[in-house]
């Protein structure tokens, strides 16, 4: 059964993150940057299985940190790798790189209303 995927929107760069994650978020962001580099390498050698695995991880993990657009990106990477859409993957990597570089992270306390406009997957 096919399920239509929602394209991530990278316009809203403000992300609200639980303050108790503040110590590990920089490490998490660095890892995503590393992932992007690795995915580019996987595209070079057409290793779509690895991209699919990495997309699946992003999908399952990033929103738990508060980065829902990255989870959505992971979902899309997973789907594009199944159909081996090289160009789409590269375009998505370009967009997500820019998004990560310009992220504005706002740490919030539990229960604080953040009025986030982000999509939820």
């Amino acid at each position: 059964m096919e399920v239509s995927l929602k394209i991530p929107t990278f316009e809203n760069r403000k992300v609200f993150v639980d303050i108790s994650f503040a110590d590990i978020v920089p490490w998490f962001i660095d890892n995503r940057k590393q992932d992007i580099k690795r995915i580019r390498e996987f595209v070079e050698v057409s290793d779509f299985d690895q991209i699919q695995r990495m997309g699946h991880r992003w999908k399952g993990t990033c929103a738990s940190y508060g980065f829902e657009q990255l989870s959505r990106t992971g979902e899309l990477l997973e789907s594009c790798s199944v159909s081996q859409k090289r160009e789409e993957i590269l375009k998505l990597l370009e967009q997500v790189t820019e998004y990560i570089n310009k992220l504005e992270i706002v740490y919030t306390s539990p229960g604080e209303n953040n009025n986030s406009n982000e999509f939820h997957i």
Binding site: S20, F21, I24, W27, F28, N31, R57, T61, S64, Y65
Partner: peptide, 15 residues
């Protein structure tokens, strides 16, 4: 197998 998730879960549950 996802180290990011392990770290997050530990951050949430250990305190």
């Amino acid at each position: 197998d996802d180290l990011d998730l392990l770290k997050l879960m530990e951050t949430i549950l250990a305190p």
